[in-house]
């Protein structure tokens, strides 16, 4: 035991060193983003292209997922509410669940998988094939062109996708409620908006902005720092998804605490 201990502490020290140097490198990357984002040249065309890629190209997947979430959550909640004679509260329950938590969370997790991995893989492959170096030697700031445009597009488009997911999930829920409780569309949406507060909507949008920023910056960071070779590109894409999902759950927990604080004020 005593013989193994120095070796163990050596590896522990090495891992801690790797962890903290990774943390420092990520911190510098985020800091660089906030330094670069304010100053020209602004890569407007690339930003629009990324908004299209992240926003429009995610619509089919988001539509399907949001719709299914709405139907499934309604059908799963109905028996419990019916048991207490509170089936008429379904629209209110669904609206609160979807707008406060499920809409942002489901959208962010899907975007982390689809958008985060795509950004990580694209920038990673550009790194290993020297395309980023080629941009640099042609006097273009690759950080601005690749990172700033993608992070801004992701930060802007995720809240838009969240609003869309909320709507689609509520429509899915309406179909179920309409079929089983014979509630009309107008009555359904009156109940939905009655249950929601301004704080619910604002907190949902603000945390979606944070989720969007996280997905973009993590994807870019992992891609930009991918090691040489195709294996590195795969690892960058995978790490972008895993790290973004991990951070999204932590941010969801923090946002819940902050929102509850304001709700109790």
């Amino acid at each position: 035991m005593s013989e193994k201990s120095p070796k163990g502490s050596y590896f522990l020290g090495k891992r801690l060193n790797k962890f903290f140097s990774g943390l420092e490198s990520a911190y510098r990357f985020v800091l660089k983003f906030f330094k670069e984002v304010w100053f020209p040249p602004y890569e407007f065309r690339e930003f629009i292209r990324q908004c299209y890629q992240i926003g429009y190209n995610s619509l089919p997947l988001i539509s399907l997922t949001g719709f299914i979430v709405g139907i499934v959550f309604t059908n799963q909640s109905r028996p419990s509410l019916t048991e207490f004679g509170a089936a008429s509260w379904l629209p209110a329950l669904i609206s609160i669940a979807v707008v406060r938590a499920m809409g942002p969370l489901v959208t962010a997790l899907i975007a982390a998988g689809k958008v985060g991995s795509s950004i990580g893989a694209e920038i990673g492959s550009m790194k290993v094939t020297e395309q980023i170096d080629a941009m640099e030697v042609s006097a273009t700031n690759p950080f601005k062109f690749l990172v700033v445009s993608r992070v801004l597009a992701s930060t802007l488009m995720i809240p838009v996708l969240v609003m869309y997911t909320d709507f689609v999930a509520l429509m899915g829920s309406f179909l179920s409620v309409n079929k089983n409780e014979l509630v009309s569309l107008s009555t359904f949406f009156v109940q939905v908006f009655d249950a929601l507060t301004f704080l619910d909507i604002i907190s949902s949008l603000l945390k979606s902005l944070v989720f969007g920023f996280t997905i973009g910056i993590v994807g870019c960071y992992k891609g930009y720092n991918s090691t040489k070779g195709t294996e590195g590109v795969g690892k960058a894409a995978n790490a972008a998804v895993v790290m973004a999902m991990f951070l999204i759950f932590i941010e969801e927990l923090l946002s819940l605490q902050i929102t509850n604080y304001f709700r109790q004020m």
């Binding site: 694209e122 492959s125 550009m126 094939t129 020297e130 395309q131 170096d133 080629a134 941009m135 640099e136 030697v137 042609s138 006097a139």
Partner: peptide
């Protein structure tokens, strides 16, 4: 540095054409 780089052409080993 950017002004200098504009006077230098760099042909990369793997061409480094922008895939997209």
């Amino acid at each position: 540095l950017n002004a200098l780089r504009l006077k230098i052409g760099f042909s990369f080993q793997a061409s480094a054409l922008y895939d997209s």
